[in-house]
Computed example of a mutant assay.
Amino acid sequence: MPVRVLVAEDEYLVREEIKASLTELGHIVVGEASDGETALNLAKSVKPDAAVLDIKMPGKDGIEVARELVKEGICAAVLLTAYALPEFIQRAKEAGAFGFLTKPFDPKALDAALQIAVARFHEFRKLQEEVSELEEELATRKLVERAKGLLMKHYNLSEDEAYRLLQRRSMETRKPMREVAEAVLMTLELMEEPKATRKKR
């Protein structure tokens, strides 16, 4: 399956070689850059499937760019370097790079690295989305519990009655339970403020 690729390499001849190899492999080069800052801005604009990044580039190096790309969920990053130094490999792992190749590279190895990187990146994004959904669900549950507690306290309701009241309000207003719970909390907590002020006096 063709991969839309951004190529970032400061050496012109090497960059042309990477582009030619990608084209021969059936991939699509959607952008090129000779420095890290340009590569990052271009990636945000063209939204490639993957970026092939030379580690040593002017300004931001390839590892810094990879870290930003992964952090912002833009695309997978495959790093290229002439020297597979342990410090580079460690930094690449910490940055979340999905592939690491040494120059001169084998086009078949580049192809495999790209395919694996894109697949892993999709898995990573899916996991991120699942975690985000779980966090949202947990936050909603906490708000609903607090709203139920205040409804029970102010209106002498049972837990089940308070929950059904929130549910009914959600259906009537066609708003998520979280929004309904937030509105209830805001209203009832405001009602409690004057009482707290009087007690202090």
Results as ranks from 00 to 15, higher is better:
Val7Asp: 01
Glu9Pro: 00
Glu9Cys: 04
Glu11Ile: 08
Glu11Cys: 04
Glu11Asn: 11
Leu13Ile: 13
Val14Asn: 04
Val14Ala: 11
Arg15Met: 11
Arg15Ala: 08
Arg15Pro: 01
Ile18Ala: 04
Ile18His: 00
Ile18Met: 07
Lys19Ala: 15
Ala20Met: 11
Ser21Pro: 03
Leu22Trp: 03
Leu22Met: 10
Thr23Arg: 15
Thr23His: 08
Glu24Gly: 10
Glu24Lys: 14
Leu25Ile: 08
Leu25Tyr: 04
Gly26Phe: 07
Gly26Lys: 07
His27Phe: 09
His27Gly: 03
Ile28Phe: 08
Ile28Tyr: 09
Ile28Ser: 13
Val30Cys: 12
Gly31Trp: 09
Gly31Gln: 12
Gly31Cys: 12
Gly31Thr: 08
Glu32Asp: 14
Ala33Pro: 04
Ala33Arg: 04
Ala33Leu: 12
Ala33Trp: 02
Ser34Lys: 11
Ser34His: 13
Asp35Gly: 08
Asp35Met: 14
Asp35Ile: 07
Asp35Thr: 05
Glu37Arg: 15
Thr38His: 12
Thr38Ile: 13
Thr38Gln: 09
Ala39Asp: 02
Asn41Gln: 15
Leu42Gly: 02
Ala43Cys: 08
Ala43Lys: 01
Ala43Trp: 01
Ala43Tyr: 03
Lys44Thr: 04
Lys44Pro: 01
Lys44Ala: 13
Val46Cys: 15
Pro48His: 10
Asp49Thr: 07
Asp49Arg: 03
Asp49Lys: 05
Ala50Gln: 03
Ala51Gln: 04
Val52Thr: 06
Val52Gln: 01
Leu53Ile: 08
Leu53Glu: 02
Asp54Asn: 06
Asp54Ile: 02
Asp54Phe: 02
Ile55Gln: 02
Ile55Met: 06
Ile55Thr: 03
Lys56Cys: 05
Lys56Leu: 14
Met57Gly: 03
Pro58Gly: 11
Pro58Leu: 14
Gly59Thr: 10
Asp61Ile: 07
Asp61Glu: 07
Asp61Ser: 05
Glu64Lys: 10
Glu64Thr: 13
Val65His: 01
Val65Met: 12
Arg67Gln: 15
Arg67Cys: 11
Arg67Gly: 06
Leu69Ala: 10
Leu69Gly: 04
Leu69Arg: 06
Lys71Met: 14
Glu72Arg: 13
Glu72Leu: 15
Gly73Arg: 10
Ile74Cys: 13
Ile74Tyr: 04
